[in-house]
């Protein structure tokens, strides 16, 4: 039985038994090639569910719209870390979520009406082919997780550049930002009921879609995700002007890893570094 059939069978069982009222998974998009999120409410609709290497979306964000409703969700290993993040941060209730984890073959690079054979960087560097949290597993767990030699190669490369070089690199990229907030809207870690850029009275960040405001927007969003980004790369995928946002997120992931030996979303119990304070903890400034 292939992955999609297993997901369909499980979804049907869960809907028929009324264990959940909705299953969030994937269906074929209107280009006939790529995938899109699907919300299944009726057992008769499970036939639409698919799973293949075009299923790139991290669906966990949608759980935030269904906090009190019993929901089943299809997650890849990277997406499953977002569930731990939201459990960590007390945003969702474990008993309301039924997790259909998929052993992930790696997702291929896709865009509208286009698929490829090529695995994106995140999948090439992936060390987690089995979801970190699940109730029902689809697919076969590999005997060992692959070793990945240099996870932060592009970050190390950026770090080697001078401040002026990095400044002009980001100034150029941010100058294209149109502040459509697709990065925020797709991000499972961005769930503030009022975002700092939505603070209009008093105004926190200017409404201008212009280099200086764009820089403030992107920099503050990145910092808000320090120790929280689970590395699904959704922000970078949806950016309409190709800003390499994951360079920022991964730089901060690397820093948090070195300082606190912590990676977001690996466990629902481990306390996130910025949500804890230990007596005797030093700030690390001017020591």
């Amino acid at each position: 039985m292939n992955l999609a059939e297993q997901i369909r069978n499980k979804a049907k069982e869960l809907l028929e038994s009324k264990t959940v009222e909705c299953v969030i998974g994937y269906e074929r998009a209107t280009d006939g090639l790529t995938a899109r999120p699907l919300f299944v409410y009726e057992p008769e609709e499970v036939g639409k569910l698919i799973f293949d290497q075009t299923c790139t979306h991290n669906l966990v964000k949608y759980l935030l719209n269904r906090r009190d409703k019993a929901t089943a969700i299809v997650v890849k290993p990277c997406d499953s870390r977002a569930i731990n993040l939201l459990l960590n941060e007390k945003q969702i209730q474990r008993e309301k979520v039924l997790i259909i984890g998929v052993v992930c073959p790696g997702i291929v690079e896709t865009s509208w009406n286009q698929t490829s054979e090529k695995l994106p960087a995140r999948c090439q560097l992936c060390r987690q082919h089995t979801p970190v949290v699940y109730d029902f597993l689809v697919g076969e767990t590999p005997p060992t997780e692959p070793a990945v030699p240099k996870p932060y190669a592009d970050i190390v490369e950026m770090e080697a550049k001078s401040v002026a070089e990095r400044q002009s690199f980001w100034a150029e990229h941010f100058s294209r930002c149109i502040r459509c907030y697709a990065c925020r809207q797709v991000c499972p870690g961005c769930y503030c009921s009022e975002c700092f850029v939505g603070q209009l009275d008093p105004l926190w960040v200017g409404i201008r879609i212009a280099p200086s405001e764009n820089q403030v927007w992107n920099a503050i969003r990145a910092f808000h995700l320090a120790g929280r980004c689970i590395g699904c790369h959704e922000c970078e995928r949806v950016c309409p002007v190709n800003i390499p946002l994951m360079l920022l997120n991964q730089k901060l992931e690397k820093e948090v890893g070195e300082l606190f030996n912590f990676q977001a979303g690996l466990s629902a119990e481990a306390l996130p570094p910025f949500a804890t304070f230990q007596k005797g903890e030093k700030l690390g400034i001017g020591e």
């Binding site: 899109r36 999120p37 699907l38 919300f39 964000k61 949608y62 719209n65 149109i178 502040r179 459509c180 907030y181 697709a182 925020r184 809207q185 797709v186 949806v238 309409p240």
Partner: peptide, 16 residues
């Protein structure tokens, strides 16, 4: 409402 299940409510469609 059903369509909005899927929509992530970014401003992308409006801005392009």
């Amino acid at each position: 409402d059903r369509l909005a299940d899927r929509c992530i409510h970014c401003n992308l469609c409006a801005y392009v």
